[in-house]
Write a protein that binds this DNA or RNA. Structure first.
Lengths: 135, 135
DNA sequence: TATTAACCTACTTTGTCAATAGGTTAATAG
DNA sequence: CTATTAACCTATTGACAAAGTAGGTTAATA
């Protein structure tokens, strides 16, 4: 289950991509347009800025803007960043301690296969793909 | 992210399938074998019994047993039951109130597509598939 | 120098996950 | 019959995260 953090992050990135401009767009504007709490968005954008997916500029005329072309962002990287991880089960998360049952676990191969599927799906969709009207 | 509820439910069903017997197996045994808290398992099995995936019998010689052949259970149905839902995003859950943005949402088609993928994956794996040693 | 707007720290509220505790009912064995 | 077994049932707990709030600080521009 993807939480609001991931979904909001994605919507903000798309919102910025839609504006199609090089100037900075203030958070107030984005929050209003998307109907998301301004203060809450702040927290989410912080991560996106620190990981260089967005550039932030303070003061008058400031705001946020993309650092790359929309085609150069994958949905997977945005979600992973905002959510912390896209792993389906705890034992497949990045820093997980090795599971005691991993050698005999009948379900592990299935989870691994599914994780691969999830990865392939989200890392092959770019922001640009989502901008195009659905077929 | 699948919680312990779903993962434990699946492991219990597999455990019972592995025993390959018609007699009832007490929860104590399953819990011990799987290394899961007995009391916690009770809660999970309650759901599985009420939905007829398992049959429970009280008293001496009692316990739990499958109601069908392992090939007649899909992983999807077990997970959906234990987790409540497999929906990826809130707006695609069973009783969700219709989203205000659904007509203009750029991400909705992607979530729908992903949900379909998840469904296809888990509802085409049976308990029997998992019993076979991985290739 | 006033205003704008990102940045930063801290807090609150709500809810779920995971588990525990203890009692009640039903089935069997002696 | 009665003791034992084991499912069934209700309630409670602690920990943690999700979602959002509040208010102050820094940096840029007009």
């Amino acid at each position: 289950m993807i939480s609001t953090k991931g979904r909001y992050a994605l919507r903000v990135m798309l919102d910025l991509a839609q504006q199609d401009t090089d100037s900075f767009i203030p958070l107030d504007e984005i929050a209003e347009r998307q109907g998301i709490s301004k203060k809450y968005l702040e927290i989410i954008l912080k991560t996106l800025v620190s990981e260089k997916l967005l550039q932030g500029l303070r003061g008058k005329g400031g705001g946020y803007r993309l650092t790359r072309r929309p085609a150069a962002y994958t949905v997977g990287e945005i979600l992973t960043l905002a959510e912390g991880s896209l792993a389906t089960v705890a034992c497949l998360q990045a820093g997980a301690e090795p599971c005691v049952r991993r050698d005999t676990c009948l379900t592990l191969p299935m989870w691994q296969q599914f994780d691969q599927l999830v990865h392939d799906f989200f890392f092959h969709i770019t922001l640009e793909d989502l901008l195009k009207p659905p077929a």
